[in-house]
Simulated scan of single mutants.
Amino acid sequence: MSFSSLGLSPAILKALEKQFYNTPYPIQEQAIPFILKGKDILGIAQTGSGKTASFVLPILQLLQTKPLGKNRHISALVLVPTRELALQVGEVFKAFSDALPNRIKTLVVFGGVSINPQMIHMQGVEVLIATPGRLLDLVDSKAVYLSDVEILVLDEADKMLNLGFKEEMAAVFKLLPKKRQNLLFSATLGKDVDTITEFLLHDPVKIEIVAEEQNIDLIQQVAYAVEDERKGPLLRYLIKEQKMNQVLVFTSSVHRADAVVEKLKANNILAAALHSKKSQGARSDALYHFKSGKIHVLVATDLMSRGIDIPFLPFVINYELPRSPKDYIHRIGRTGRAESSGIAISLISEEEKHHFGVIQKKMKKKVELLSTDEIELKGY
């Protein structure tokens, strides 16, 4: 199945092409047509299943033809449990919105930072991605109004309930109009999620995606214990010592991706970054040059890595670990394709050791953690 068969507009399809999205994930295939028809959705899907785009794309399409409402009266609200997820969802909205003829203004808000800039930036916002507590702060400050919300998304509802947002979520629900479209996504359908589903959703379409097990037996996994400040030199050492002519490096943030590339270039290693802050032209050039062998190292964030489809990619390096074991498997699965072997290397700091243990437990595979104390990194 292709994105063009899901009822998406030519403008959205063009935006998908620019972001290197080629084939929809199962949850996107099932959810997008129903969301476009205005149906409530209950989606049960794990992190990394493609659920973010499954609601971002139809929301942007629905808002493309809608006149701009009253200032500070948002049209779509996405509630998330954490700052990290808020930023991730915001990146997806921005990446696609920037490629559309009618740009939809989105804003990400969360606690732990000054509220004043967020209040100022609420001007003209149509889509708000928020943690519940900070959203209520903005409502109390009259910086945003929820009376015209047409679409409500609860992303990772199970985590919000586990983190104790139940009362805040209930307070938000009271401020919303009764007539609206509700989209609820959760990794599991526990008792609390089931209760919210009953009063929140009206005749919902239930979609449950069972994750496919990815065969990682062909992938040779190697991990190095290394202090944070030695990660850069170790990366450059490995690339040069193992003569890596095509290696995909994963970082957890845009800023880190750029910093890694800058250091690689300074050490005469041909490299480029691929992330949402780069222009469309820069992203296309980076991907083309990597596939054609003109650059040897591509440093990418998880969000922008979807379009990297290379049958015989020999090396993947985790400069930093992803937040979920599924994302880890998805990353290393970029190598070891088409029945060819590949090598996946992870650089593990002291703070990451516990999380790496969790990842190994989830994938049911032990990876030896090698010491780097004896490796001389001076000059790298």
Rank of each mutant, 00 (worst) to 15 (best):
P325F: 03
H289N: 15
K291S: 10
G336T: 01
S252A: 13
K326L: 12
V299I: 11
A273P: 08
A266W: 02
I310A: 03
E320Y: 04
A257N: 08
S340C: 11
S252G: 05
R256Y: 01
L313C: 08
T335P: 00
P314D: 06
H289E: 15
V254S: 09
S276E: 12
K294P: 00
A271M: 04
E262Y: 09
L298S: 05
K294F: 09
S340T: 14
V260A: 04
T335N: 01
A266S: 14
A300S: 15
I310H: 04
L298P: 04
K278N: 11
Y319K: 09
A266G: 09
N268Q: 14
Y328P: 01
N268F: 13
I310G: 01
A344T: 10
L298F: 08
L298K: 04
S292F: 02
N268Y: 12
L274M: 08
A259C: 03
K294S: 13
K294A: 14
S279L: 08
L303I: 15
P325A: 14
I269L: 10
A272Y: 03
P322A: 06
A257C: 10
Y319D: 07
G293R: 10
G333H: 00
G293V: 10
V316G: 01
D285C: 02
S279H: 04
L274D: 05
A300E: 07
R334A: 02
P314A: 07
A272H: 06
F290I: 09
A282F: 05
A300T: 14
L313S: 01
N267R: 04
K291P: 00
S305K: 03
R337W: 08
K263L: 12
K278G: 05
H296T: 14
L298Y: 01
K291W: 08
A257R: 01
S284G: 07
K326H: 14
A338I: 12
I308D: 06
I317F: 02
R337C: 06
P325W: 03
R256G: 00
R331K: 10
N268I: 07
F312D: 15
D309I: 06
S279T: 15
I317C: 06
I343N: 07
A257I: 03
P325E: 07
R337D: 08
D285H: 14
K265Q: 15
A266F: 08
A271I: 10
D285L: 15
A273E: 06
A282Q: 15
G336Y: 00
S253Q: 11
R323I: 13
S340G: 01
A338P: 04
V297L: 09
Y319S: 07
I308W: 02
S305C: 09
E320S: 13
N267I: 00
K294Y: 12
N268E: 13
G281Y: 10
S324H: 15
R306Q: 09
T301Y: 08
I269F: 04
I308C: 03
G293F: 09
N318W: 07
Y328T: 02
A282D: 13
G342R: 00
L321N: 02
V261K: 03
F290D: 02
E262R: 14
H296E: 14
V254M: 12
